[in-house]
Measured scan of single mutants.
Amino acid sequence: QEVDTIELTRQVKEKLAKNGICQRIFGEKVLGLSQGSVSDMLSRPKPWSKLTQKGREPFIRMQLWLNG
């Protein structure tokens, strides 16, 4: 299904801030990505339709983390 990447990243940033989790830790533990990649993804999320399967994976992980 289509994911609203802008809304998703907004919710993730909100939860990170609320729980005092830094992007570096979130990136390493949840997404398996560097802090730079995570920062870029959270500040400039690409539309779901423009992402490859590999590009979608971190957003799917974010969704699971939010719902977890």
Rank of each mutant, 00 (worst) to 15 (best):
Q1C: 11
Q1D: 01
Q1G: 14
Q1W: 05
E2C: 03
E2P: 06
V3K: 08
V3L: 13
V3F: 11
V3T: 09
V3S: 11
D4W: 01
I6V: 12
I6H: 13
E7D: 01
E7L: 15
L8F: 08
L8H: 10
L8D: 15
L8C: 06
T9G: 11
R10E: 11
R10Q: 08
R10Y: 04
R10I: 04
R10G: 10
Q11F: 03
Q11L: 09
V12P: 13
V12C: 02
V12E: 09
V12T: 07
V12Y: 07
V12H: 08
K13F: 00
K13R: 09
E14T: 09
E14G: 07
E14P: 13
E14I: 05
E14Y: 02
K15G: 03
K15Q: 09
K15E: 11
L16I: 06
K18V: 07
K18M: 11
K18N: 11
K18F: 04
N19T: 14
N19M: 14
G20N: 15
G20H: 05
I21T: 06
Q23A: 07
Q23R: 12
Q23M: 06
Q23P: 12
Q23Y: 07
R24C: 06
R24I: 04
I25H: 15
I25Q: 11
I25L: 10
I25K: 12
F26T: 00
F26C: 01
F26V: 01
G27R: 07
G27T: 06
G27V: 05
E28G: 11
E28D: 04
E28L: 09
K29P: 02
K29L: 01
K29H: 09
K29M: 05
L31V: 05
L31D: 02
L31W: 08
L31F: 09
L31I: 04
G32R: 12
G32P: 06
L33F: 08
L33D: 04
L33T: 11
L33N: 05
S34E: 13
Q35C: 11
Q35F: 14
Q35N: 03
Q35G: 13
G36Y: 05
G36M: 11
S37G: 09
S37E: 14
V38L: 12
V38Y: 14
V38H: 04
V38W: 15
S39W: 04
S39M: 13
S39R: 13
D40L: 05
D40K: 03
D40N: 08
D40T: 09
M41S: 04
M41P: 04
M41D: 06
L42P: 09
L42K: 12
S43P: 04
S43N: 15
S43D: 15
R44L: 08
R44V: 07
R44G: 09
P45F: 07
P45Y: 04
K46E: 13
K46P: 15
P47T: 06
P47G: 09
P47S: 10
P47Y: 05
P47F: 13
W48F: 03
W48H: 00
S49N: 14
K50T: 11
K50G: 06
L51S: 00
L51T: 01
T52R: 09
Q53P: 14
Q53N: 12
Q53T: 13
K54D: 10
K54Y: 02
G55W: 07
G55P: 01
R56G: 01
R56Y: 02
R56W: 02
R56P: 00
R56L: 02
E57G: 09
E57R: 05
E57D: 07
E57A: 12
P58W: 13
P58M: 14
P58R: 11
P58Y: 10
P58S: 10
P58T: 14
F59S: 00
I60T: 13
I60N: 11
I60F: 06
R61A: 07
M62T: 04
M62F: 13
M62N: 00
Q63D: 02
Q63G: 10
Q63A: 04
L64V: 08
L64A: 15
L64S: 15
W65A: 01
W65Y: 04
L66N: 01
L66H: 01
L66Q: 00
N67T: 12
N67C: 06
G68M: 10
G68Q: 06
